[in-house]
Design a protein around this nucleic acid. Structure first.
Lengths: 212, 212, 212, 212
DNA sequence: AATGAATGAGAGTTCATTCAT
DNA sequence: TATGAATGAACTCTCATTCAT
């Protein structure tokens, strides 16, 4: 087996994973057939088994493909020396743009991973937990440095941010013209400041305080 | 056909819908079998067809069941005379508690409705859009009365809130011990004020303002 | 059980047989469902079993109903003192008009009787054979009295006439406006004289005979 | 896809069509199961779907197979330069022998084609109508050249001949020892001359004519 | 590296039939 | 006399998977 042969195999396997991702995202794991996947990559059904031992393995690979880099980036962000706000925005950017770049594999991970057998789900669970914990830590730091309120529940914060991004992820996948840049700004702003008008309130409060 | 006969049928049909909701939530539409559903309600597979014309019809009924009351409640909330903050919290309460009360039917609606044929999806789409628009209007009012910032995008706000609640919905369904009351408080707080510490900022700003 | 009760039962049973005949004729025995039959007579599926022990029994009754009177009439015709031509036409008339009068039951007998179990088919076979034999005898008489050619095969003649009438029977059932009277004339004429022009031939032959 | 592969597929498909024809002829479309068909060709039920998209498609193919060549031959006969009597006998020969050669597919066409959906039946209808019209034309020519009587209804003649042959077709299929050659002679003779003794009649008529 | 052919398990669905009411 | 409810067997069809080529 020459190097180029091996390379070509790996390349084709990547194509297979992306095809599977695309089909699983569209029809769900059980709703998708191996014929669908094979057709999307331009080969015949039986040939798919040259790249995957089973349909389930395909799902496993797609989920891994979907979450791996996503987690990797989070590590980088968490380890970086930026201020809290920057980290937050970087996280959101990374999360949302994953939906565009990874052929819907992240969506598949979110929606279909529980159809994997326990043992294959383990690895994914770790990765996912790791992600959430890193995010939690970022929030905790935010609290420690006084940017965030003492009162917030960092576990809740992390979980919420993930859910919020995943919610938008669905829409991103469905609507290819959605403006990611704009979306990132707005999400970041919401998580930081909420929707309430502060200036006026402050003034009112200040006035009240003065009057006291 | 006596009244009691009709009643009995309707009752059993409700049981069937709830069973289907439960199974669809667990295994997804394509992953669930009609035998699963029948078994969960204690009848044999073939008998299910006394209540549903097809598995697909069952999905349709579940989705409708999941979203109907949910939309109904939103109308009530939107039409009420409460201040913005109360409406917001009512919405979140309604949304999150639906996941507990309706046998996971709302989750099924969110995740599986797109496996319905176009015509059956229409009605759901309208209901869903109605919900979002009502929510948007609530935000718009919040802006008008000055509680919310002028700058916020109400469409984004509504969509985000829905995504955020749905994200937690998944977790609510999976973890029956999750404290809904606590969760509602935190979500409301996030949407209103974000996570950032305001006092300090205010002080800083006050100082700056003084110095001016 | 009063007489009127019994009468009513027999009446309803006749309705059931006619309904079954109509449905079997339209969809075939295996293509028809007991629900179809019940609906056509305005009762519910389960109630049909008050009149028939099984779907198969229904078929049996329909076949019998279809062929009984038909055979009966043939006996009358064969026993009568008419000349051959009149008997032939009477037979054709009887056969073809059966398709109109008996709710397609004769058609069902022709097309579906072989889905009956051996023992139930026996009786029908006898009836059918009887019919054919009577018809054969009519032809044999025709030969004996010199109206028909010596050379003809009476078994073939009978079989052919039956097939020919059944062929038109299908068309009669499908087209309610078909002119039976006209049809009977033409069939009789065909069987007697064929389509060939005789006069000319006769003249030729006469000429030839003269020349001899 | 090599030529031999394609050939093999087409061959096997033909086998499938013939198997289906045989089973449909025996049990009817609704009475036959796909398992029956598969078994008759020595494969497993599921494998049948490698050759047919559905049971219905199988029926369509069988009907087409049954009627196609049959119509083709009629064209040849109609276009030939033979005298009327020869054409008639050729038609009967072609029709009756089809029942032997085509694996009962013609019988299936006759009895089961109406279980096909409208669109698939269209083509068959055209073919069938074409056949009848060709046959009508042959009769019309027979009249024109004076072999047949002026008075005959050619539409009736064609329809009758078809019905008559189909009637015998059923018997041919059921009884493999039936003497086709003999049958063809007799049918032709019937259609041409009927069963009536002509000599005597002629003599009578001659006598009458003389007396005039 | 890929494919045609086949398979067996299981899916959704229909339906004749039963029976308490 | 008729029905609602249920059943279980059979049916058509799909599909993941295998394997010789």
């Amino acid at each position: 087996m020459s190097i180029s042969t091996e390379r070509r195999y790996e390349n084709q396997r990547q194509v297979a994973i992306r095809s599977a991702a695309s089909v699983f995202a569209e029809k769900g794991f059980h709703g998708a057939s191996t014929r669908d996947i094979a057709e999307r990559m331009g080969i015949k059904q039986g040939s798919l088994y040259y790249y995957f031992k089973s349909k389930e393995e395909a799902l496993g690979e797609v989920c891994l493909f979907g979450i791996e880099e996503y987690v990797e980036r989070m590590k980088t962000i968490a380890a970086s020396e930026q201020p809290f706000e920057a980290k937050l925005m970087a996280t959101i950017t990374s999360h949302l743009s994953s939906y565009r770049e990874r052929n819907e594999a992240l969506k598949v991970h979110n929606d279909e991973r529980l159809y994997l057998p326990e043992d294959k789900r383990e690895k994914l669970k770790e990765l996912g937990s790791g992600y959430r914990q890193q995010l939690e830590k970022i929030f905790e730091e935010g609290v420690k440095v006084g940017v965030l309120r003492d009162s917030i529940d960092c576990h809740f914060a992390a979980q919420t941010m993930i859910g919020l991004c995943n919610g938008w992820g669905d829409l991103i996948v469905r609507d290819p013209y959605l403006d990611l840049f704009d979306l990132i700004q707005k999400c970041t702003d919401l998580v930081l400041h909420g929707f309430v008008e502060r200036r006026k309130k402050q003034r009112n409060e200040m006035v009240m305080e003065k009057n006291q």
